[in-house]
Each structure stands twice: as C-alpha cells, then as structure tokens.
Computed example of a mutant assay.
Amino acid sequence: MLTDVVAPPATAAWRAGDPPGRRRWLDLRGPLPLQAGGALPGARLAYETWGSLNPKRDNAILVLHALTGDSHVSGAGGPGHPTAGWWDGLVGPGRAVDTNHWFVVAPNALGGCQGSTGPASAAPDGKPWGSRFPFLTLNDLARAENDLADHLGVDAWAAVIGGSLGGMRALEWTLCQPDRVRALLLLACTAASSAEQIGWCSAQVRAIEADPNWRGGDYHHAAPGHGPHAGLGLARRIAHLTYRSPAELNGRFGRIPQPGENPWQGGRYSIESYLDHQAAKLVGRFDAGSYVTLTKAMADYDAGRGRGGVAAALASVRARTLVAGVAGDRLFPLVQQQELADGIPAAGPLRVLGSPYGHDGFLIETGQLGPIVGELLSR
C-alpha cells in the first residue's frame, strides 16, 4: 500500500530534527527488486510538488535533480530548506516551467539523504543501513519513482526534465517506462559514463573510503563531528573542479593568494579557499554514504545495458526530445550530448548553452535554458 506521510518520519534520512519544509513522503509498495539482485525493503521517497494536476491529468512534469541536489527545485529558503530552490529561476509561477499551468513533481532520489531512503536511514532492524545499503542503479531509481507517479495519479508525464545525473535518470525513465513519458529534456548528461567519468567518480569514492571515520560505511552512530567529513570534503573538492571551467577559475582566482595568507608560510591560494568553502557547504548538508551510493550509480550508468547497446536504446526512445549541453563542460563534454541528439529519433539539433561556468552552466544559465524548455513544452 502507498502511504503519503505529511509529517517527517522518525527515521528521516536527513539529520534528525530538521523541519520538513515542503517535503512529503511516500512508502513504496513492498520491497523494491534491484537490478543488481536482491531487493530493498521499506523504501521511502521524499518529494515536493507545485501547481495542481488538471482533470485530464496531462499537465504533470517530473524534474530530476543532479548528484547532490534534492526535491527543493523552486521556492524561497526557510525552515526545512536553508536555500532557495536549485532551479528557482526556471520553475515557478510565470517562469519557463510555469507552475500556474504545470503540475511539477520533484523527488529526492532513492539513496539520497534529503528525506528518501539511503544509507543513513533505518533498516528493518531499526539500525542505520550503513555498509549494508545495497548497490543501486539508475534503473532502480526510475522504477522507485514509478510508484510515485501511480500514487499521484499521473498516467504519463507531459515531460521529464533533468540535468547531469538528473538527465541520465530522465533518459532511464523513458527507457523503463516509454508509455509514461511524452516529452524529454536531457541536459549536460550522457547515455553511458565514459572511462574518464568513471575515474573521476572512483577518485571521489576512494577519498571518502580512505577517511578513518568512514568505518567501512558504519559511522552513523558516531558522535557529532566524527563522521567521514574530511573524506567527503576532499571528494567535493575533486568534483567541483570538474563542475567549473578552467577559464572561469583562472579569471576569478588566477594565482592570487587568499587575502591575509601567504602560501610560502602555510597559507592558501584563493582557489584553495574557494574549494574549502564548497567542501564545507556540502559536508554541512550531505551524507557521505549517500554521496558514495549515488556516485557509484552515476559511474555505473549504461543506457544500452540489456537493450542491445547504446545506439539501439536511443533509437527506441519515443518521447519528443530536446538535448542541450554546455560549451566548455569538461565533466560531460558536448560530444556526449551530440550522441544523444543524433541517436534519439526526431531529437533535432543539439542545443548549446554558452557559459563561462562549465558544467554548472545548466543550473546557472536559466535565461538561455528557458526558451529551450518553452520549445519542448509548446510542441
């Protein structure tokens, strides 16, 4: 039975005591069978919605977040949501995804740490899953969200939209459930992780696992401040260098020392201070176990697995599709989005966002992205 929980559960996957904000919770129907074998019992998804489902039930849009995102796509910060929505410039009343017209749904990915079941959540024995949490694939995440569509009464999504890991999840959604996706927007993502992307992911996972406070993944009972924060911070530093472009980093920081610090005397360059800041922000809001779980799922992704290869999988996509990438993206280079645009029938030409920011441009350049979204939704 699907249960919609309005109040935060006692075993919430984010830190105990955090207010729920706009989140709601859904208990999945029975154990979730996993692609790698076995099943995940007692799984729960956190999600948020904006707008209303119309009587025809044909105005629902699914928005899928990237690696360290969450369900808070739109709206101001406040209790339960320290910052404004991560796509607030794109989703909301009067914006490209106009919530006065569209019913927008954003789940926190299974395996995450912002309300959905993940390694920090309680297993059936009442103890945190920790190292016992199973390996997840993006196929597992999409199938879990299928229960959410059923619960909300959405027979088919008018569109599924995602960038980066969210774009890979969006592609998997339409491959898993072709009859439930009418339109698809794939941003700054790939149909299969490359050797380099697997390598970047591996370096980040190894950084976390090398932290003595990782404790093999069973650190959730440690006293506050004694988790694998150093390893998670290092992983974030590695990742953030792939999120931004060399031109932007050189333009912003160059070789300038951090004010008041001398690198010859143990001080930092400004770029080091910036990376330290990004690391501290993530450590303050994200669970290392979830980071490992979702990073491994991203590295593992291959849309062609079990479908006759990537080309055959892309050729099977029936949803109206637009593909966009970011100029200068060194994490998901444009050649990968070109493969998507070329391989998906009637996807049309690849759209390119001009941006000095690199990969993060898909989050920042909402002014350029708005017309692309508008084209998809008006076709």
Results as ranks from 00 to 15, higher is better:
222 A>N: 15
339 E>T: 00
57 R>H: 14
76 A>H: 13
167 G>H: 00
65 H>D: 07
331 L>R: 02
43 A>R: 03
200 W>H: 13
176 C>Q: 14
323 V>S: 00
63 V>F: 13
265 Q>C: 12
86 W>F: 11
37 G>N: 08
116 S>V: 04
131 S>G: 05
319 A>I: 02
269 Y>W: 14
128 P>I: 05
250 N>I: 15
144 A>T: 04
200 W>A: 13
207 A>T: 13
209 E>M: 12
90 L>E: 01
112 G>I: 01
101 H>K: 13
376 L>G: 01
113 C>D: 08
125 D>E: 08
280 A>G: 11
204 Q>D: 09
160 V>M: 05
189 C>R: 03
141 L>E: 07
289 G>L: 01
217 G>E: 01
222 A>S: 15
361 G>M: 05
373 V>Y: 01
208 I>H: 06
379 R>I: 12
123 A>D: 04
72 H>Q: 08
201 C>I: 14
33 P>H: 07
335 V>T: 11
306 G>M: 04
299 A>C: 11
240 H>R: 15
57 R>Y: 07
93 P>N: 10
181 V>I: 14
344 I>S: 00
321 T>A: 02
240 H>G: 06
86 W>G: 03
253 F>L: 09
170 A>Y: 00
30 G>V: 15
154 V>I: 15
112 G>Y: 02
327 A>T: 11
356 P>H: 10
206 R>K: 14
265 Q>M: 11
12 A>W: 09
104 V>A: 04
29 R>P: 10
357 Y>Q: 08
9 P>I: 11
195 A>S: 14
212 P>R: 13
103 F>K: 04
44 R>C: 08
360 D>W: 03
376 L>I: 08
185 L>T: 01
40 L>E: 00
185 L>M: 10
94 G>F: 09
105 V>N: 02
113 C>Q: 01
15 R>V: 15
